[in-house]
Amino acid sequence: MGVVRPLRTGAQHADYGFFGPDSVTWKVWSYPTSLALGFLRAVVVEELDPFLLASVEQSGQVVARPRLRYDRTMQYFATVKFGDTASVLAAADTLMKIHARAIGTDPVTGRQYDANDPDSQLWIHLTAWHSILYTYEVFGPGKLSAAEEGQYWEECARAAEFQTIDPADVPRSRDGIRAYFASYRPRLIASENAQRMMDFLLDADAIVLPPELPAPLRRLFTAVTRRAVVATLPRWMRRLGGTPQPRVVDALAIAVTRPVIRLVAASTALQMAVLRAASPRTVPVIEPVLRGTPPQRPVVSTPAEAYAAHGPTPREQYTALLEARARQQGPAPYPAGHREPLLDFA
Rank of each mutant, 00 (worst) to 15 (best):
S173W: 09
S173G: 06
R174T: 04
D175T: 00
D175A: 12
D175V: 04
G176A: 05
G176D: 08
I177K: 07
I177H: 01
R178Y: 04
R178I: 02
A179Q: 14
Y180E: 02
Y180Q: 02
F181H: 14
F181S: 08
A182M: 11
A182I: 03
A182C: 03
A182N: 03
A182P: 00
Y184W: 15
Y184N: 05
R185F: 09
R187T: 06
L188G: 01
L188Q: 12
L188D: 03
L188E: 04
I189C: 03
N193F: 07
A194R: 01
A194C: 02
Q195A: 06
Q195D: 01
R196H: 12
M197T: 03
M198P: 00
D199P: 00
F200I: 01
L201I: 08
L201P: 03
L201A: 07
L201G: 04
A204G: 11
D205G: 06
A206Y: 10
A206S: 12
I207A: 02
L209K: 07
P210K: 13
P210S: 11
P211H: 10
L213Y: 13
P214I: 15
P214T: 09
P214R: 13
P216E: 10
P216T: 10
P216N: 09
L217Y: 11
R218L: 08
R219W: 15
L220Q: 10
L220Y: 10
F221N: 14
T222N: 15
A223H: 14
A223V: 15
A223K: 14
T225V: 15
R226T: 03
R226M: 03
R227V: 06
R227M: 03
A228M: 05
A228K: 11
A228R: 07
V229Q: 05
A231Y: 14
A231P: 12
T232G: 05
L233V: 05
L233H: 07
L233Q: 07
M237Y: 12
M237H: 06
R238K: 13
R239C: 00
R239L: 03
L240M: 10
P244T: 00
P244E: 01
P244V: 00
Q245E: 03
R247K: 08
V248F: 15
D250R: 12
D250T: 05
A251F: 06
A251I: 04
A253Q: 07
I254H: 08
A255G: 02
A255T: 06
V256I: 11
V256W: 13
T257F: 01
R258H: 08
P259N: 14
I261A: 07
I261M: 15
I261T: 04
I261C: 02
R262Y: 08
L263R: 06
L263N: 02
L263Y: 07
A265D: 15
A265T: 00
S267G: 08
T268M: 06
Q271E: 12
M272T: 08
A273M: 11
V274D: 12
L275W: 12
R276K: 15
R276I: 09
A277R: 14
A278R: 09
A278M: 10
